[in-house]
Computed example of a mutant assay.
Amino acid sequence: METNNSFDEIRAILKEITEKQRENDKEISRVAKLVGEIGNKFGSFTEGMAFPSMDKVLRKQFGMKTVTTNYTTEAGSDTLEIDVLGLANGDINTAVIVDVKSHLKRRDIEQTVKTIERFRRLHPEHANKKLYGVIACVSGSKEQREQAQKEGLFVASIHDEVFELKTPAYFIPRDFSQPVTA
């Protein structure tokens, strides 16, 4: 009889542990969702801060005539979202893609390059334009900024609540409309 009682006690304890684990899992999911929402709001806040500054930068420093935010292209099941897109025809004949980031990471640089390449593929009507990329970030290490520039991307940083494009004298921007040469 005592063995049955011990098994019953163990079952009861295991049932209680399982219930507590489910409660913990639900709480962890709730907290993860809240953290994600906060991150999204900060990203939206960063983009909102960047748009007016990047509009000025694209018009003054690149000569863009058209600047649009939240540009989306759908091609079948492929959706391309661009934070800021600048376009100019005529003598300038250039497109500039701006990717806005709160905190610059290596994967953001890779993602920006892929976005630019996808733009080129999804928009053959701009095939004759020069194509440049800009990463506008609130923060990021010196190494990440240098890596972005090494990839040929302009880097805009925030200073006194305004994004500014600062490039070192040695920086050579990559024209993403040209094939990569080894």
Score class of each variant (00 low, 15 high):
residue 24 N to P: 00
residue 25 D to C: 00
residue 25 D to S: 07
residue 30 R to C: 00
residue 31 V to R: 06
residue 33 K to W: 06
residue 34 L to I: 10
residue 37 E to R: 15
residue 38 I to D: 04
residue 40 N to P: 00
residue 43 G to N: 10
residue 47 E to K: 03
residue 48 G to L: 05
residue 49 M to T: 05
residue 49 M to A: 09
residue 52 P to A: 06
residue 56 K to D: 08
residue 58 L to V: 01
residue 60 K to C: 03
residue 63 G to H: 00
residue 66 T to I: 12
residue 69 T to F: 04
residue 71 Y to E: 09
residue 74 E to Q: 15
residue 76 G to D: 12
residue 77 S to M: 11
residue 78 D to Y: 09
residue 79 T to E: 10
residue 81 E to F: 12
residue 82 I to D: 02
residue 82 I to T: 14
residue 83 D to N: 14
residue 84 V to Y: 06
residue 84 V to Q: 07
residue 84 V to E: 06
residue 87 L to G: 06
residue 97 I to L: 15
residue 98 V to E: 09
residue 99 D to F: 09
residue 100 V to A: 15
residue 104 L to M: 10
residue 106 R to S: 15
residue 106 R to F: 13
residue 107 R to C: 08
residue 110 E to G: 13
residue 113 V to G: 08
residue 114 K to C: 02
residue 114 K to T: 09
residue 116 I to H: 05
residue 116 I to M: 09
residue 122 L to I: 07
residue 122 L to S: 04
residue 124 P to Q: 11
residue 126 H to Q: 09
residue 128 N to D: 14
residue 130 K to T: 12
residue 133 G to M: 02
residue 136 A to L: 05
residue 137 C to Q: 00
residue 137 C to S: 12
residue 140 G to M: 02
residue 143 E to M: 04
residue 143 E to T: 08
residue 147 Q to E: 15
residue 148 A to E: 05
residue 148 A to Y: 00
residue 149 Q to I: 05
residue 150 K to Y: 10
residue 153 L to E: 01
residue 153 L to I: 03
residue 153 L to M: 09
residue 153 L to A: 09
residue 154 F to L: 05
residue 155 V to W: 04
residue 155 V to Q: 00
residue 156 A to M: 11
